[in-house]
Every structure is written in C-alpha cells, then in structure tokens.
Design a protein around this nucleic acid. Structure first.
Lengths: 156, 156
DNA sequence: AGCAAAATCATACTTTGGTATGAATGAGTT
DNA sequence: AACTCATTCATACCAAAGTATGATTTTGCT
C-alpha cells in the first residue's frame, strides 16, 4: 500500500494540487461577493483549467505511441564488409536509446528546447544527453555530432 | 479494450483518485464547514469531466512518435526532372560564393571561429555571412542550414 | 530483492551562435 | 561617374549551446 502511494505519488500530487486550486477558487468566490452570482464564469474557468491540466498530465504520463516508419536508404555502394564494420563501430559507441533519439532530432535542426518539447523532457535533460553524446562520439559541437552520426549511418 | 485500460492505467488511476479525493473533500466540507455545496458539486462534476476529457483529447490528438527503422533497400536515383528542379531552387537562393563556402565548412562541424581561421577572415565577417545565409535559406540555426543545404545538394 | 546503468532534473557558469546596425572597400555595370 | 553588390570588419547585445556537479528516480537484469 505504501509502495503504491510512493510509486504513484505524482498522481496524488497532481490531484492534490488540483484540489488546492479548486479550494482557492471557492475561497475567492466567497471573498469577492461582487461577482457572487456569476457562477458560470467560475465553471468556465474550472472547466478550461482542468481540461488543460488533464491534457498536460495525460501527455506527461502516457508514453508516446510509436509508429515504425521504414526509411529508404541507399546502400548500394557499401560492401558487406563496410556495413559490418560500421555496425561494429556503432555498437562500440554504446549509445543509449535516448541519446540516439536526441541525435536524430538534432540532425533535423531542432534546438535543445524544441527537442525537449518534442520528447516531453526538460531542457537540462536534453543538455546532459547531448553532452554524453558528444563525449561518446568524441566531438565538441552538435554539428560535428550530426556529421559523425551521418558517417556512421546513425542518421537518415 | 483491456489493453487500452492497462496501457493508460495511470490516467484512469489519476481520474479515479481525483474523483475520490474531491468527493472526500466535498463530504468534509459538508460536515465541517457547512457551506452550501450545491454549486460546488456541480463544479466538481465539471472539473472531473473536463479533466478526463482533456486527458482523452490530448491522447487522441497527440502525434504518434515516429521511430525510424533502417531498411536496406535500394532507392532509385533522382530523376532528371528532380535534378532540374533542385538546380532551379539553388539558383533562386542566389547564394554568394562566400556564403556557400561558409555553409560547407559549417556542414563539417566547424565553429565560426574555426571557419574564420580557415578562410583567413575575422569572426564578425563569418557571422554576417552566416546570418545572410540563414536569411536566404529561411532557417534559424546552422544545423537547419546544413540540413537544408543537404536537401538542395549544396553539400556533399 | 538488490544492484548497475540509464534517465531525469536542477543550478550555476562559460562559450558559442545569432541579430542589429553601421561602415569601409573594391569590382563590375550602366 | 554613379550605382549596385559582394565582401570585409566592428561593436554591442541577446539567445542558445555546452560544461560541471550533484541528486533522484526508473528500469533492466541477475
């Protein structure tokens, strides 16, 4: 039971905060007697607020649906030996899935903030991911990372 | 259906806990504070309804994350028509030779300072060139410029 | 159940990138 | 000769990128 609470504490936290806001609205309602009878307004506020919060929460909590998309690749020039070597290099890099994901969004020209928004993560998180990525790829800048990622066929 | 419930269990859990807490609050209010609660109940219903609705909508509307899967498939070369169109686009961009030069060094991952050193120019000069370049390519960042330059076959 | 790696977030800081504005120079054109 | 355009450089300022460090949480694996 306790573990349950700990595990889903975010859920309870959100619920609690929502309740708090609701209570606050109620208090305000009783303090500001002027608009005592404009209940519709409060309801509208609450409806919008909760709709937005609900939406945000849902996006936060639910892992995004993944759709597999086949990418067309020109592999004609590379010999099987080359491909094998590339595969080996890729494995030696030992990139995590997140790092790879970040790299691919980088290659499309997204800023760190945009990547964070896209993946529903915070900006610092993206920064740490990219820092690790640069270390592993032994590069200094994102443009170099993209270049190297392209050479290793991690992108496109 | 069952899968759906399992997959989004957090959301349902959130909604359920929200309802529970709100109802509890209502009861407490009724018992302790003796506040007229007919409107509150209405608002609670609306809040819960819209929270769930917002969550549902968000889940419905969110774009599925696309995961690129490599397929080693041979892709036909560009048709002459495509090449012609690319050439036309390139000409319409009206890039100066310096701008093109800067773009190509960018694509290799060089920093502005490094580009300046390479071309025996000053840093401000490179900055103005790159600014113009971004304008003409209608992009905001160097990574986007590289991406667009690649699409237009200005690089490689 | 417990551990190691991955992932997340934060804060503070430095560096690089990008914009705005202005200005000087030289090459080629009308 | 006047004009346009590309090129060069400068200064100042704001935004984004990247580093360092530390902490917490998930998660995959034994």
């Amino acid at each position: 039971m306790f573990r349950f609470v700990v595990r889903y504490k975010l859920v309870f936290l959100y619920a609690a905060s929502l309740v708090l806001i609701l209570v606050l609205l109620n208090v305000l309602q009783y303090k500001l007697l002027l608009i005592n009878h404009s209940y519709e307004f409060y309801m509208l506020c609450i409806a919008v607020l909760f709709a937005v919060l609900g939406g945000w929460l849902a996006l936060k909590l639910v892992k995004p649906k993944t759709v597999l998309v086949e990418t067309k690749r020109l592999v004609s020039e590379l010999t099987p030996t080359d491909l094998q070597q590339l595969e080996q290099e890729r494995q030696q890099l030992n990139l995590s899935s997140r790092e790879l994901e970040v790299l691919q969004l980088m290659a499309r020209g997204l800023s760190n903030q945009e990547i964070a928004d896209q993946l529903f993560l915070s900006l610092p998180t993206i920064k740490t991911h990219s820092s690790r990525l640069f270390e592993k790829l032994e590069v200094k800048r994102r443009t170099q990372a993209v270049e190297k990622g392209r050479q290793l066929r991690l992108i496109d």
